[in-house]
Design a protein around this nucleic acid. Structure first.
Length: 562
DNA sequence: GCGTGCGACTCAGAAAGTTATCG
DNA sequence: GCGATAACTTTCTGAGTCGCACG
């Protein structure tokens, strides 16, 4: 297929890479003289560095998390470290700090920017476009490719997800001296900003990143990489789905194997087999171990603790029910009650016996051990492949089951969304209910009611016209009947469309469809579905998505099978 | 060997920004 | 046709997975 002709040596990702380096966010601009910080009720002029950090906090005053003790303590600790000794002498209590004037200054500034005249906004946009044009692209093997994130992250206060122990810590400004540049030896090497140097320039074509730096909160690397529309990323994406398709061929064998292993004499094997069952059936993530105290307390399959499940021999008329309740990736809650096969239930009872709630459910198991086993079952198989496989196969099955060829485009799109939704539910992709949800739902309902009324009126009009025609039998009255019927039909269609909209909206209020669409669903399934039912591809993929999935749009015919 | 830390990559939802829609 | 608002899109950057080097 399309990429096979230019196979590279193992591990080599490119032959040529040229770019401008990262775009550095603007330096701090001091506050105007009349915007003041107050300590213990009295104005206090801060040093530049101290003031900058104060503005980070001031900007966040509206956020609920600035009220959290951990956030405040982390912030105050890091802030004090950057103060002059004089400032340290004075500023000893965060409660005596008054950032409100600074806060107001930024709120006003924001509004002023929004209220700018059209021409001014246009000018700003052109400036942004120019930066994008200059820094937003690279040359990779002769092709101009879009970069995903070409700007350094601005300094600020760290806010992790959930109950993160490091929330409020100071995220430092990235300087050229922190940045490692990666490009090809013979390319035009990016110039560091005036008066600065790069930390390092290297020429490593076994990696895909263009620049990297170490962030100071978790002490981990951050990268500048290509946009999903790039050939490099697209090829990788395609590979991912090909691995998942290979799993389809062997999944039955693997399922038979883990069923057998439920009865293994080795406890470790049993744990692996039960964990794999969860990963397969419930699309759980692998669940690597994490360093305690460094991140929020979240788990995946292998790191589940006894406290995260409850066993019910009987529940709501079902047998062997496992009740899951834990925080997964991004501290999103996973709550599910699942009826499992009896040996699984018995094994879980065994694994939980004589354990504290805080102990590991699968105490013998690690993701490394699990993945070694999977690798042995199929080349390239890891825990996450099950998520991709089950997501994609579910979409395909749901589309088959839900699409009614008789439906109009809106009806078919509802079916598509429902199939997509089934996957999002499987993968537990949630979002917070939009703030305006209740209100906009009410508005929609009112529209529906109004439309219903119109339909009823139109029905009566039709009847009246028909009666008149019966009486008069003249051509004009006949025309009128047709006219009224046409109107009725149009109104009925509008009503149906509104009802579909309302259904879709309600079903979707807490479900995030984007993640599965972008990362788990083989796009060729969707492309094939569109072709088969004559749905324009633009109706399911926007411009960005079409760019990312160009390979699939190119490749898949209407008879593509995952 | 083998566990452990780290590097490189994918995946994640919130928030900001832009466009479409509606009265 | 205009302004408010909702819907959609883009940006942002944190949080996972997983392989491998290293001691």
């Amino acid at each position: 297929s399309r990429w096979e002709e230019e196979k590279k040596e193992d591990g080599v990702k490119w032959m040529q890479l040229e770019h401008r380096g990262p775009y550095f966010v603007p330096l701090y601009e001091p506050l105007p003289e009349d915007v003041q910080f107050y300590y213990d009720g009295k104005p206090l002029k801060l040093s530049l560095a101290t003031e900058e950090i104060a503005t980070f906090y001031a900007k966040m005053l509206d956020h609920e998390y600035t009220t959290k003790e951990i956030f405040q303590n982390n912030f105050f600790h890091d802030w004090r470290k950057e103060m002059t000794s004089e400032e340290q002498e004075i500023i000893k209590d965060l409660d005596k700090c008054d950032f409100r004037e600074i806060h107001k200054y930024f709120v006003d500034k924001n509004e002023a920017r929004k209220a700018l005249p059209k021409e001014e906004k246009q000018k700003l946009k052109e400036e942004a476009d120019k930066i994008q044009e200059e820094y937003g692209y690279c040359i990779l093997d002769g092709h101009r490719e879009k970069i995903g994130n070409f700007k350094t992250e601005p300094p600020g206060l760290f806010r992790g997800r959930g109950e993160h122990p490091k929330m409020g810590m100071l995220k430092k400004r990235i300087m050229p001296e922190d940045v490692v540049i990666n490009c090809s030896r013979d390319s035009k090497i990016p110039e560091p900003p005036e008066g600065h140097k790069w930390k390092e320039v290297r020429f490593d074509n076994t990696v895909t990143w263009l620049a990297s730096w170490t962030e100071n909160i978790q002490n981990t690397l951050k990268y500048i990489m290509l946009n999903p529309s790039s050939k490099l990323k697209g090829e990788k994406d395609w590979q991912k789905y090909e691995v998942a398709r290979r799993l389809k061929d062997v999944v039955h064998t693997i399922r038979a194997q883990y069923r057998k292993d439920w009865k293994s004499k080795e406890l470790k094997k049993r744990q692996r087999a039960v964990a794999l069952y969860f990963i397969d059936k419930l699309a759980l993530r692998a669940g690597n171990e994490k360093e305690e105290g460094e991140t929020a307390d979240t788990v995946g399959c292998c790191s589940l603790r006894v406290e995260h499940i409850q066993l019910h021999p009987q529940l709501d008329g079902q047998e062997h029910v496992v009740e899951f309740d834990f925080l997964g990736k991004d501290s999103i809650r996973y709550y599910n009650k699942v009826s499992v096969e009896k040996p699984v239930f018995k094994n879980l009872q065994l694994f939980m016996k004589n354990k504290d709630p805080t102990e590991d459910l699968f105490d013998q198991l690690s993701t490394t051990f699990l993945n070694k086993h999977l690798q042995h079952l199929m080349d390239g198989l890891t825990a996450k492949v099950f998520r991709t496989y089950n997501a994609s196969i579910t979409l395909q099955e749901q589309l088959k089951a839900l699409t009614n060829p008789e439906d109009n485009v809106a009806g078919k799109l509802l079916s598509y969304n429902r199939a997509n939704r089934a996957v999002a539910i499987l993968c537990n992709h949630q979002r917070s209910i939009p703030k305006t949800f209740a209100k906009s739902m009410q508005v929609l309902q009112e529209k529906i009611d109004a439309k219903k009324k119109q339909v009823e009126e139109a029905q009566e009009e039709v009847k009246k016209a028909e009666d008149e025609f019966k009486d008069t039998q003249d051509a004009k009255a006949e025309d009128n009947v047709e006219k009224k019927k046409k109107l009725l039909k149009r109104l009925e269609e509008q009503l149906a469309k509104l009802n579909i909209q309302a259904t879709d909206k309600e079903e979707n209020k807490q479900i995030a469809l984007g993640t599965s669409k972008l990362n788990y669903l083989d796009p060729r399934i969707s492309v094939a579905w569109c072709k088969k039912f004559g749905i324009p591809i633009e109706r399911i993929y926007n411009k960005t998505q079409r760019e990312k999935f160009a390979w699939a749009i190119d490749m898949a015919g209407e008879d593509f099978e995952f």
